[in-house]
Amino acid sequence: MVPLSLPANRPRLGNLDYLRGLSATSIMIYHYTTWSTGELSAQSFLGRIGIYGVAIFYILSGLTLAYAYNNRLSFSKTSLGDFFKKRLFRILPLLWLATLLSIALSKKIPAIADILLNLSGLFGFFKWNTYFATGAWSIGNELVFYSLFPILLIGMNKNRYLQGIITFFILSCHILFTFRIINPNELLAKQWHLYTNPFNQIFFFYAGILLYKLFSNTILKKYTGIGIGLTGLCILLFYPSSTINVDLVTGINRVFFTLSCCLICLSFYKSQYLLPQLLDTWLAFLGRASYSIYLLHPIVYAVAKAFFKILSKHSFVLPEGLLLAVSIIATLFTSYFVHKYFEVRFIRIGAKSYLSKE
């Protein structure tokens, strides 16, 4: 969701960009399909990627941060200051843009306190279910995870007892939400404030850190890596569930779907896929622009739908499928320009202090 800008001497993990871009695009298509045809079955691939696409983002976030900062981050003022500056300049500007545009399109004036919580990113800590841009709840979660990342990484590196305590706490949270707190007999929409709680999602972020620590020195043979990825994909596609989406995030089902996301991420992390140049360029673009795709696609859809509505009032009735196609194309073009001329500008500002020390 939020691609990581790496220090100059840390080569980019291109395969993770592929997965990040594919996940963002899948979530976009999931939303567009849902808004056009209604709620999708939890047995469908899009219905499942709508839930676990975000989980994959979290795993990738933890993995890439651990890759970039392992043995480079300390509790010194300078080190932490550079880390948080870089992260905030990476994530907040686009969140501001998406939030303000979403408020404008809603034509409603929300509480000033809620606006300030969203623009500061603090809503993830205090009111994680109060957000204006569709999907921004996960960005609030990310900010919580970033605040904890130095403790998670440095604690893991320096003290095995602290590592054990952290792992036990995070795993316990995951188990409690999975088997106790979220009710499998009640619709997920009615429990959204529980599902979007950062402590219900933090295991995925931590799993990414663990994947790096456990497999950073592991070399997988080509077909072994592909096999791991296909195993994870098959679980995501074919593991049996009911048609109700709460069944995907509770009980033993969530254990298997969590495993599937980890296997998919591990496969992309450790396998070296040699793709044709055109496909490589396209997937790399989707990865770099994934944050824009994720946050801006609901806004693009709302604008496109309003335009189609105006045309229908003038006897130009267009098929729903055309709205879907136009929205996808417009989102990709918009995301390209926003990433290139908006996101990158702030990424460079956030990176100056860090890169000056390289």
Results as ranks from 00 to 15, higher is better:
Y69D: 08
R87A: 11
A207F: 03
L16K: 10
N118S: 10
T196P: 13
Q191W: 12
I264D: 01
L259D: 10
L40H: 09
L296N: 00
G208E: 09
V338I: 12
L275E: 11
G321M: 10
Y195W: 11
P240G: 01
W282C: 15
L311T: 02
A289T: 12
R87L: 10
T64L: 10
Q201V: 01
M28P: 00
L194H: 01
P150D: 07
D17L: 07
S5F: 08
A330R: 02
L143M: 13
K213F: 09
L152E: 11
F316V: 09
L210C: 12
W96P: 03
F126K: 13
K340N: 13
E358H: 12
R348S: 11
W128A: 15
I329W: 07
I103W: 10
L80S: 05
C265A: 11
A207V: 14
L274R: 06
S120Q: 04
H339V: 02
N15G: 09
I91T: 06
L211P: 10
I181C: 08
S79T: 02
N217G: 07
G225R: 06
F203Y: 08
T258F: 11
I226P: 09
L40R: 06
F346C: 08
I170H: 13
F75K: 11
S335A: 06
D82N: 13
I112S: 12
P7F: 01
R180D: 15
S102K: 04
S36T: 13
F45N: 07
I154Y: 06
F149T: 02
S172F: 15
K77Q: 14
Y273W: 13
L248E: 08
L311I: 05
S290N: 04
V249S: 01
L355W: 08
N197V: 05
I252W: 09
P150F: 10
F123D: 07
S260K: 04
D82T: 08
V344G: 14
L46I: 07
L92F: 02
F75H: 00
L187M: 10
N15M: 08
Q277D: 14
C173P: 02
A284K: 12
Y30V: 04
R180F: 15
V249F: 00
L286D: 14
T130A: 01
T196L: 14
P240V: 03
K108Q: 13
I103A: 01
T224R: 12
I166C: 07
Y69T: 03
A136I: 00
Y131Q: 03
T25V: 04
A98W: 11
G21W: 00
I347P: 03
N71V: 12
S216Y: 03
L194T: 05
G321P: 05
R48M: 05
T37H: 10
L187C: 15
S41V: 04
A189S: 06
L318Q: 09
K77M: 10
I182A: 09
A98N: 01
K305T: 07
T99M: 02
L220D: 02
E142I: 05
K127L: 06
L105N: 02
Y273E: 05
I165L: 13
K127Q: 10
Q201L: 11
Y273Q: 03
A306K: 13
L332Y: 03
L332K: 04
W35E: 14
F83V: 11
K85W: 13
I112Y: 05
T178M: 00
S41I: 07
C234H: 14
F215C: 04
L188R: 11
K221A: 12
V303T: 08
S106G: 07
G135I: 04
F45P: 05
P298W: 03
